[in-house]
Write a protein that binds this DNA or RNA. Sequence first.
DNA 1: ATATTTGCTTGCATATTGCAAGTGCAAATG
DNA 2: CATTTGCACTTGCAATATGCAAGCAAATAT
Lengths: 151, 151
Amino acid sequence: MEKLKKRSDCPISGSLDIFGDKWSLLIIRDMMFFQKSTYGEFLKSAEGIATNILASRLQSLEEAKLIEKLDHPNSKAKFLYNLTQKAVALLPVIVEIHLWADKYFDNPADVKKKIKEVKKDKNEFIKSLAKQLEKQMEATTSSNRTSINTN
Amino acid sequence: MEKLKKRSDCPISGSLDIFGDKWSLLIIRDMMFFQKSTYGEFLKSAEGIATNILASRLQSLEEAKLIEKLDHPNSKAKFLYNLTQKAVALLPVIVEIHLWADKYFDNPADVKKKIKEVKKDKNEFIKSLAKQLEKQMEATTSSNRTSINTN
DNA sequence: ATATTTGCTTGCATATTGCAAGTGCAAATG
DNA sequence: CATTTGCACTTGCAATATGCAAGCAAATAT
C-alpha cells in the first residue's frame, strides 16, 4: 500500500522515512517497555491511536522489518506482533530520547524513577533490556509465522 | 498557528509531539552538521522541503525553543536561525540514529567514514561537536534577537 | 532606476489522519 | 447449537497536513 521511498541517501532521512511519524515509535515503545503485543493492546495506549492508523503503521513497520506478525499461540482470533532485532537495535535511540525528555519535560514520577535507573549505567540498561527482549523473541518466533505480504 | 499539545505524559510521546515528523530533525541535522542557518540554505537540502512546510517547521521549532530566529549580522534581507542548547542536547539522539542506520542501511562512503569516527569514541564526538555548536551559538546570540511571536 | 535575492505567504490539488461505523471470523455464553 | 461478545481489522467520510507553483514586500545588487 505505502511505498518505502527514500528521500535521500542521508541516514537520518532514511530513518525518518521509516519511523519519522507520530505513532511508529510509540508502538515500539509499547512493545519494548509494556510488553504489548496485540492490536487490541496497542489500541489502548494513552495517546489513543485511531484503528485505521494503527493498522497502517503495523503494516509499514512490518514492511520495514521492525516487527513480525505471528499467529497468537493462545488464540486464533488474535495475532502476535513481535519486535525484530532491527527494532531492538533502536533501543539506544529511544533511551536517548528519554534522557533528553528528562532534561526538558516534567515527567511523571514513575518515568523519572526509570530514567534515574538508566542514568546509573546506560549501557548496562540497554544491554540487559535488549537481552530480555531477544529472549521474548525467541520464545515466540519458533511458532507459526504469518504470511509475509508480497504485493 | 499550530498548537503544542501533548498527547500524553509519556516522554517519548512528548518528544514526538515536538520533532516526530519527517522534516524537523532534518533541519536540525542541517544546522548541526552542515552549518546551515538561513531559510534559503534549508530549502536547498537534498530531500527538497516545500517552502510553506519549511516556514511552518521553523516556526514550530522556534515555539518549541529548539531554534532561535535572529537578525542576520551581514544582511537585513536574511534571518539567522540558531540552535539552542535544547537542540544541541538532541545530539546523542541523532548520533544513535546514525549508528542504527549504519547497521541497517547502505550509506554513502563519506557518511560511513563519519560514523566510523563516531564509533571510535562516541562520547568524545558528541562532547566536542556540542562544544563547537555552543561556540557558534555564543558568537551569534549576542546580536539582535528577533521578536518572539506571542499570539 | 531596475533586476535579483531573500524569506516568506497564498491558493489549490493531493495525501495523510482521525473518527465512527461496519465486517468477518473465533471463542465464549446460554 | 444459536447468539452474543471479542478481536483484528476495513470502509467511508470529514478534517488536517503536505506538496507544488505562483506571488509578494523588503533588501541588496547591477
